[in-house]
Design a binder for these strands. Structure first.
Lengths: 307, 307
DNA sequence: GACGTGCATAACTTTTGCCTTATGGTTTCA
DNA sequence: TGAAACCATAAGGCAAAAGTTATGCACGTC
């Protein structure tokens, strides 16, 4: 059946007015143009759609059936057009974001602020580990990803937008707590509670130590920042974590940040997406928003540390 | 938004396969043809619908939205096509019929038989008076009308399909009941219970009497055949009704048909529709059916009476 | 019976649609 | 690094789509 949308549109007008001439006026056409469209439509349908009884025009049963359909289709297209139109702007839309587990501590706040500024946007925020992030990037499942160390393997665009200093933490009753500045030599003698292999924080630590010709003394290996903090609290050694994870612990005095030589380790949070991906208007808006506002929103973070 | 159904169809195929090349194969096209359709669609939508990430093709959010719509539209067209297809045949369809109130006595049986032969056809049967029939014809509300005397005013096609003899009825205890043959002179002396002015039966009676130079003696005027019969039963005079209305009364002996000179009055039932109306396949089938079967189905009717 | 209205039809023009082949650029995988 | 897969783009050409004007026919009305 070779109907065209144009035929349906013309048909709908005629069916509504029950007059070829009125429909032609509405569509800014001549009457023969309408006649031809209807004729072609009737031909491809294989049934008469109208019947002229003297002066008046009636819909046949087939015409009534098709009238319903054409109205439904017109409606559907209108609705879709509206949705698509709104997708062009950022009044509405969906934003799919994935963040590294560490970033969770501020990403939620970031999203909430963005949400307040642009109501009508719906979000999905996946908090996952590095593997999950890479898989999501690979499968193109997310609009943007927030992570600390973009891998070089995939072809990505990564823009740093906020400092992410790694600091040394200790229990308040640790011998080094409160000392003026712990020297590098002193620090080497301590055992560290660390994240698992492959973790971004772990890799950054190892590189930091290696670049100074020292092997990291790992006392205990744990798979989450929360676990690290609990272990350090319990006096099982020193820890190295992003300062963004410490808001509560610093406030309540359950952990302290050591002033240590060569610390904090300067790192950054990156906004990441696959190179060549066409960011939606919503994603672009979020990106802009992040660059503008990120600093102000991460209240607990210290002033950026120059490298 | 100037989308075409073709664009949507091509788009749907690409969205389903997530591949221009596969879609082209399915549609028996070359790949550039598909590319162009999509490009034009994207242009008229104003948004990218796909994004190529290296080897793989993904739907953008706008693409997902449009994919839903295009599937829905395709579905709707399919369904409509099916309905229209069935309208061509008489497997399905609707038949709208109006009958004169007198015809009700056999029209229902006629319709029931037709319904048994063609299951899947739905009916509407309006039983109404002459006025109602004319209005329905004027407004083109019915496919076919069954009536006893098609008016000349409207431009109609009327085909007689069955005899509709008007007979003289009397109560069983009437003096004339059972007599061999009532003469015309004798009959003139009787008073008749008649239908109201404008009724088809009434008009036929008056013409019949007038053609024989006699004025009808009307004793009582009633507005339905049922009322006539009850009045005759009660001994209020003779009646003249279509024999089709008498099935029950004859069987139970509550009324008798007089053998009278110049009776029965020969009349016919007509199948009527406005001239030039395109009858649907269902209506045509019903028309054929009526001509074939009408005689056999009106069991109570006597053999046609030649004029 | 003449006129007005409404639709159909014909003839013609212009534009657009649509598809093809040819070619070039990327990306991926061996 | 070369082949293969995939898509984009350009150029050319055919077909049809879609519109116009002009005209005719049927019906209803005055």
């Amino acid at each position: 059946m070779h109907v065209t949308l144009r035929q349906l549109r013309v048909f709908e007008a005629v069916a509504r007015h029950l007059s070829y001439t009125r429909a032609a006026e509405e569509l800014h056409l001549t009457q023969p143009a309408v006649s031809m469209q209807i004729k072609q439509l009737e031909e491809s349908v294989g049934l008469p759609l109208f019947e002229q009884m003297g002066k008046r025009t009636f819909l046949t049963e087939a015409g009534q059936e098709l009238h319903q359909t054409s109205r439904a289709i017109a409606l559907q297209l209108e609705e879709t057009e509206e949705v698509l139109e709104s997708l062009k702007g950022i009044r509405r839309g969906r934003l799919r974001i994935a963040v590294a587990s560490t970033a969770n501590y501020f990403a939620t706040r970031l999203l909430a602020a963005f949400c307040r500024r642009y109501p009508g946007i719906s979000f999905s925020l996946e908090v996952t580990n590095r593997e999950g992030l890479l898989r999501a990037l690979e499968a193109n499942e997310k609009d943007l990803v927030i992570m600390g160390r973009p891998p070089e393997s995939l072809d990505l665009e990564a823009e740093p937008f906020m400092d992410n200093p790694l600091v040394v933490i200790a229990a308040p009753d640790h011998p080094l707590a409160g000392t003026d500045e712990v020297s590098w030599e002193r620090l080497q003698q301590e055992a560290f509670v660390v994240r698992e292999e492959g973790s971004g924080t772990r890799i950054a630590m190892e590189r930091h130590f290696a670049s100074r010709g020292v092997k990291l003394r790992t006392g205990m290996e744990l798979s989450s920042n929360e676990a690290i903090k609990r272990a350090v609290e319990a006096g099982m050694g020193l820890g190295i974590v992003s300062i963004h994870t410490l808001e509560l612990e610093l406030e309540t005095g359950r952990l302290v940040v050591l002033r240590a030589e060569a610390f904090p380790i300067p790192r950054h949070w990156y906004l990441v997406h696959r190179r060549g991906k066409r960011l939606s208007p919503v994603a672009l808006a979020f990106r802009d928003f992040v660059f503008e506002e990120a600093g102000g929103l991460v209240g607990a973070a210290p002033a950026p540390t120059a490298e």
